[in-house]
Amino acid sequence: MDAHISLTVDGTERSLDVDTRTTLLDALRERLAVTSPKKGCDHGQCGSCTVLLDGRRHLTCLTLAVAHDGAEVVTAAGLADDGLHPVQQAFLDHDGYQCGYCTPGQVCSAVGMLDEAKQGHPSHVTDDLVGDVDLDDDEIRERMSGNLCRCGAYPGILAAIREAATA
């Protein structure tokens, strides 16, 4: 069964018909040819499909498109108006990737995570739940653990995010 929805994707308004079964990930990739978000597992277990949905990092594979009519989607392709987002530049500088397949999701997740930390959200490794967040290496690692990288580029990803966080 089809439904008509509109999305703002990387700043551009798009309207499309979707099957009610269509995930936001498939709507982006198959209907709108927006392939920056990747399909690594399709079950919320790898993070490759992460975008910023209405400003927060979000897994598009576990999201039905029909439930997000009117949403604003920002993918790694739309993070910067021109050139690269500082997080993306830091990924290049620290070689925070190899095959590149998890990378757009890592980048979006990092951008969303830095915002969460700025808002003072605690994490599993935050010792003092009521204190301020000190975004040290362990905090970055924990907060980024929803994004698997099978190439094992974690040290570079960590270095990139550490730099972007303090820039």
């Binding site: 927060r56 979000h58 969303g112």
Partner: peptide
């Protein structure tokens, strides 16, 4: 809550 799933899933 913080020990469950991932940052993205906790947002959803």
């Amino acid at each position: 809550l913080l020990s469950g799933a991932s940052g993205q899933i906790r947002n959803q």
